[in-house]
Design a protein around this nucleic acid. Structure first.
Length: 148
DNA sequence: GCCAACGTTGGC
DNA sequence: GCCAACGTTGGC
């Protein structure tokens, strides 16, 4: 099982809005970058990811789950752009800021730190665990939710 | 609001 | 296939 990170500017699409979509989730549309698209193509149902607020907040604010495999992006006029569907799983009890990630030795190689521009990125299992720990999220509780 | 980093486009 | 020009992202 791989882990991911989805980045969004909160004034365009926030975690609050994501949560409001409920269990059906929404398509993660609008990505126009091959690397990011390829990561989405690699995603499997039930995989977990972080929801990151860029620009304002600059923090991991919640956990999401892939609930729809990659399919053509309905907002794209070019069929080469695809996206997955994701749904909100839970809040990060305490948002983990970019600053916190940068100052955490275990996260020094995290894509968020090394390539801040990639909007959909892979997260290592150890990185995922470290961020959950910093954010006060019980990974065991997370594992118990919505298993497929 | 600025600017550096990065990706994409298009002329040659 | 190279590379200059341009556009976008996102931290600061």
């Amino acid at each position: 099982m791989a882990f991911w990170l989805f980045k969004s500017e909160p004034f365009k699409w926030s975690f609050e809005q994501q949560k409001a979509c409920g269990a059906d989730g929404t398509e993660w549309s609008g990505v126009r970058n091959y690397q990011a698209r390829n990561f989405m193509r690699a995603m499997v149902l039930g995989e977990r990811g972080f929801f990151y607020h860029s620009n304002e907040g600059k923090a991991v604010v919640g956990i999401v789950e892939v609930c729809g495999l990659a399919h053509p992006d309905s907002t794209a006029d070019d069929p080469r752009w695809e996206c997955v569907d994701i749904r909100a799983v839970m809040d990060m009890p305490r948002p983990v800021t970019l600053d916190a990630c940068k100052s955490e030795p275990r996260l020094k190689d995290m894509v968020l730190v090394t390539n801040s521009r990639l909007s959909v990125q892979p997260v290592g299992e150890a990185e995922f665990a470290a961020i959950c720990e910093i954010g006060g999220l019980d990974v065991a509780a997370l594992a118990g939710t919505g298993k497929r």
